[in-house]
Simulated assay, not measured.
Amino acid sequence: MVGMRLQVGRVCDGWLLGDFGYALKTWLLTRLTNPQTDRECRYNDAHSHTRSVVERAIGQLKCRWHCLDRTGGMLLHRPNKVCHIVLACGVLHNVTHRHGIPLGEVVAPAPDDLDPEPVYVLPNQQAIQARQRVIAAI
């Protein structure tokens, strides 16, 4: 749902981050396969670090709220209801965290070098320029 909003331009101030299993888009940034400059290396490091934080957060939510983990990656409800379920799980997770209720065992996310093989789709020029603008700002 967020990706569709980004794709049609309804959200202008953000990006999704994807691993090598995704094609570069103007709204979905992927790592560079062969960084050449310090800025490109910093971009890849920032991308990996951010994805790691997000993956850890998703792992914690799935660990605490099994309704998110046992679905095979898909909640079988309307997208609007799924958004409410995930939001409620996030709010409840924050409440339990503030009250010191232990999470239980959390499985560590896989290291970044276990990303799927790169998708060899030629990105369009606008997508390449969008990623270059982000890299230039680092």
Results as ranks from 00 to 15, higher is better:
residue 109 P to L: 07
residue 103 L to Y: 00
residue 48 S to Y: 00
residue 69 D to I: 07
residue 25 K to H: 04
residue 47 H to N: 03
residue 72 G to V: 06
residue 10 R to P: 01
residue 23 A to T: 11
residue 82 V to A: 14
residue 14 G to T: 02
residue 24 L to R: 04
residue 110 A to D: 10
residue 132 Q to T: 07
residue 89 C to G: 10
residue 77 H to Q: 04
residue 47 H to P: 00
residue 50 T to E: 03
residue 7 Q to S: 05
residue 85 I to F: 12
residue 23 A to I: 10
residue 26 T to N: 07
residue 9 G to E: 13
residue 76 L to D: 10
residue 109 P to D: 07
residue 3 G to F: 10
residue 43 Y to I: 05
residue 66 H to C: 03
residue 33 T to G: 06
residue 43 Y to D: 05
residue 107 V to D: 01
residue 46 A to D: 04
residue 97 H to D: 04
residue 22 Y to E: 04
residue 90 G to C: 15
residue 51 R to E: 06
residue 98 R to M: 10
residue 36 Q to H: 01
residue 3 G to K: 09
residue 30 T to S: 03
residue 94 N to P: 12
residue 9 G to C: 13
residue 94 N to F: 12
residue 11 V to E: 11
residue 100 G to Y: 00
residue 77 H to D: 03
residue 67 C to L: 02
residue 116 P to Q: 09
residue 48 S to A: 04
residue 30 T to M: 01
residue 21 G to P: 00
residue 97 H to W: 05
residue 90 G to P: 13
residue 138 I to N: 00
residue 70 R to L: 11
residue 41 C to E: 03
residue 32 L to Y: 09
residue 43 Y to S: 06
residue 76 L to W: 13
residue 14 G to N: 01
residue 43 Y to T: 10
residue 138 I to H: 00
residue 83 C to N: 14
residue 90 G to F: 06
residue 17 L to C: 07
residue 89 C to L: 09
residue 8 V to Y: 08
residue 10 R to T: 10
residue 126 Q to F: 14
residue 11 V to Y: 11
residue 3 G to D: 06
residue 52 S to R: 06
residue 108 A to H: 11
residue 126 Q to R: 15
residue 100 G to S: 00
residue 72 G to C: 07
residue 11 V to C: 11
residue 127 A to E: 03
residue 12 C to R: 13
residue 95 V to A: 05
residue 30 T to R: 01
residue 92 L to W: 15
residue 103 L to I: 01
residue 105 E to W: 09
residue 36 Q to G: 02
residue 59 G to Y: 15
residue 12 C to P: 07
residue 96 T to A: 13
residue 14 G to P: 02
residue 103 L to Q: 01
residue 114 L to G: 01
residue 129 Q to R: 09
residue 111 P to L: 06
residue 80 N to H: 08
residue 136 A to N: 12
residue 108 A to K: 11
residue 91 V to K: 01
residue 80 N to W: 05
residue 44 N to L: 02
residue 48 S to R: 03
residue 137 A to K: 11
residue 127 A to C: 06
residue 12 C to D: 08
residue 115 D to P: 02
